[in-house]
Design a protein around this nucleic acid. Sequence first.
DNA 1: TATTAGCACTTGAAAATTAGTAGTGCTAAT
DNA 2: ATTAGCACTACTAATTTTCAAGTGCTAATA
Lengths: 328, 328
Amino acid sequence: MLTERQSQILKLIITEYIQSARPVGSNLICKELNCSSATVRNEMASLEELGLLEKTHTSSGRVPSEKGYRYYVDHLMKPKELNGEDMLKLQIIFNNHQLELTDCLSESLKLISDMTNYTSIVLGGASHDNKLKEINVIPIDTDNLIVIVVTDTGHVENKKVTLKNVSLEEIKKTVNLINDLIVGTPIDEVSSKLEFEIKPIIGRYVKEHEMVYNTFYQVFKDFSSKNINVVGKNNILKQPEFNNIEKIRDIFGKLDNNEEMINNITEENNDIKIYIGKENKLDEEVTVIKTKYHTKDQEGTIAIVGPKRMDYDRVVTLLEFIKENIEK
Amino acid sequence: MLTERQSQILKLIITEYIQSARPVGSNLICKELNCSSATVRNEMASLEELGLLEKTHTSSGRVPSEKGYRYYVDHLMKPKELNGEDMLKLQIIFNNHQLELTDCLSESLKLISDMTNYTSIVLGGASHDNKLKEINVIPIDTDNLIVIVVTDTGHVENKKVTLKNVSLEEIKKTVNLINDLIVGTPIDEVSSKLEFEIKPIIGRYVKEHEMVYNTFYQVFKDFSSKNINVVGKNNILKQPEFNNIEKIRDIFGKLDNNEEMINNITEENNDIKIYIGKENKLDEEVTVIKTKYHTKDQEGTIAIVGPKRMDYDRVVTLLEFIKENIEK
DNA sequence: TATTAGCACTTGAAAATTAGTAGTGCTAAT
DNA sequence: ATTAGCACTACTAATTTTCAAGTGCTAATA
């Protein structure tokens, strides 16, 4: 456990470093406390001993270690009041009822991204209790048709499919079967229902049943897959830690790899969670702050990615605010 | 007009510079020609006089000027045979008939982007002679419904709209009217037909006709707007001309600004056009090679963006190949 | 016992110097 | 018309110098 003064010093160093990005020396700290720089140096040495601070070289000021950030986040940081101006801008987005939820999220995270110069991610998908409302087919020509799938929350997905040698009538039959038998089913159970309830039946009615089944199966599979939106990628270039091409290429490569992102960013926890450096799966150089959100329509993850030297309390407050606002 | 030897030298310098990215000296050239470096130097001086070459400093080798590239492109470059391996990879994409045209384009340009380390852009929109096939509404709850618009080529767009105090019956009436009166209309004439043929009529049937009209008007307006896809943005980071953060920020900022991109990239010419440096509206530092494509479903622009020191003949050949393949 | 003044020492960053090299233009000879 | 030869230029990379920021330790102090 840290003494009161050690806590103060650690906190000062971290907040200072967060905004200056330069190692913090004892002189700066001792002005804030009523003691000499020598005293501060002694304390700094202890904090370094504890693994909470680091030096960049023997005679440099101190920089927080990952453990230091972790301690700050767990014990020292106190939630910041949301700046009135920021709140106002966000509220304007939330109050625009024209916007669909996903757009609303993207817009507000874009705003946050611009305000903070971090990168945001919106990862969304149909909610688990989203139910199939209806499916519909529209023939285009003899071989091609559009399948449209609608959920009870108004999410629509469409796909153009090619079905050769299958009569429109057979397709309509299949569609009717689906509409009769599995409408109302939660979207992520549709695939199995399709397999166990529809597949055995259409064999009797439909000549090319294997092909038809596969087509619909594919449509639903695409439907339930997640979508991802990475917002304000360029803002991160303003961070001094991304000042060389190697790092930029590296992080941009990762941010652009949707599959990897979905795997690494998806969050199952409903609280705001903070993953510092090695704690996150995306990149050792960054911190990811994220949370799961869910509304009646939809659920997913919103995340902010920035350098470890991140304005933790501000980001947490902003994410909390967004989460609250979209969930109602 | 250049002498034969001047042409040779200019061409050698440009091709060499394109692949080395370093100023080209007289020694390198004289080995290719049967003459001394001094002779080459004299010729280089003339070419510089003509504005086709430049020096980076008094005693440096030569670098092509924009005018030099232009001369190369207009007079010196001869179309390259498409490399067998490249062609094979592209053909695999084109032969995958599962893919919709837009995806096919995006995939092949992604491939080109990875092969060349330039950035590609697919700018697409419904073709002018795309026709409205049908519209459809699906009610979600009392206030919300989904409008689905389908064209004869299988392009589908949907939008969730909120219509308070409007009965489902009234909406259905409007939909039927649209389906009766303007199905078959080219998509970019729909808006005006909506205004002059539907608007006057629904006033009689529908109580909140103003609101209903506006809703549908908005849906079609969204539908006909263009979409843009910038592919392989990160590859351009491998180009030595983008080796400082400023330039990266600058070009990425531009590439991310969709509106600006649509304005600056859209090409109306059916040939492959080359815009070098100041000739293009996107960025002085780059060259844009682009062409308009049109298939029966769709038309738009495909473009490649790279440094002025671009592998012109290769890119032209690749673009030509893609254009040919998608247009059939 | 905790704090602090003071000083020697370390290191990196920036500026200045040096050395080397790739290339030029010009002149005079072929 | 071409070319050998040479003086000259300016960049690049390496090295050195200078400077400031900051440390750790010791000894004095409250």
